[in-house]
């Protein structure tokens, strides 16, 4: 089996790995780096469960080869906590009931993070659009949408408090 040496930056840490050329980012994350928080529901780019962020943009890790990611930053669900504290999105999801079985949750959270980083005050429609590639079979999406709104509001509050302080 032909292997290649790759360097991958995941959640701020650099890893050098020898992996078979056809192994997807999803497989490398889960199997070589034991980052099993990234899920899979199809491995064909259809469900969104494997969503991670690459340089802040949502990417389906089941469709990407790690070799394409040299020099780029991968963020997985394991890297979403900040200083050991849950990200506002994580907290809002937990409080709102947005994670039922939780299997879609890591992918949904990362898609939502990419959205909020780009657009701090999205409408419900914009949130639904941003998450339309992440299937969830449990929640009917409504508590997910609510959780994203709740987190967005909270993050805006924190940000405006910070700007007020810094004045």
């Amino acid at each position: 089996m032909e292997k290649q040496l790759i360097t991958l930056k995941v959640n701020g840490e650099l890893h050098t790995l020898a992996v078979p050329v056809f192994k997807t980012l999803l497989e490398v994350l889960r199997e070589d780096l034991s980052l099993t928080g990234t899920k899979h529901g199809c491995e064909l780019g259809e469900c969104g469960a494997c969503t991670v962020l690459v340089d802040g943009e949502p990417v389906l890790s089941c469709l990407v080869l790690p070799i394409e990611l040299q020099g780029r930053e991968v963020l997985t669900i394991e890297g979403l906590m900040e200083g050991g504290r849950p990200h506002p999105l994580q907290r809002a999801f937990a409080e709102t009931g947005a994670a039922q079985c939780g299997y879609c949750t890591p992918g949904v959270l990362l898609s939502a993070k990419a959205l909020l980083d780009r657009k701090p005050a999205p409408t419900r429609r914009e949130i639904a659009e941003a998450l339309s590639g992440n299937l969830c079979r449990c929640t009917g999406y409504l508590q997910i949408l609510e959780a994203v709104e709740r987190a967005a509001a909270q993050m805006r509050d924190v940000r405006s408090a910070a700007t007020t302080d810094g004045r």
Binding site: R30, E31, S34, L35, T36, G37, T38, K39, H40, T76, I77, E78, L80, M81, P86, L89, Q90, R91, F93, A94, E95, G97, A99, C101, G102, Y103, T105, P106, L109
Partner: peptide, 23 residues
């Protein structure tokens, strides 16, 4: 009362291990 589920945070941090996560 609307308590968060006892396993809510682990499910939101990627910590919950499902069958395929076992190695």
């Amino acid at each position: 009362k609307p308590w968060p589920k006892v396993d809510a945070l682990p499910k939101c941090t990627g910590e919950t291990r499902y069958a395929d996560d076992l190695h």
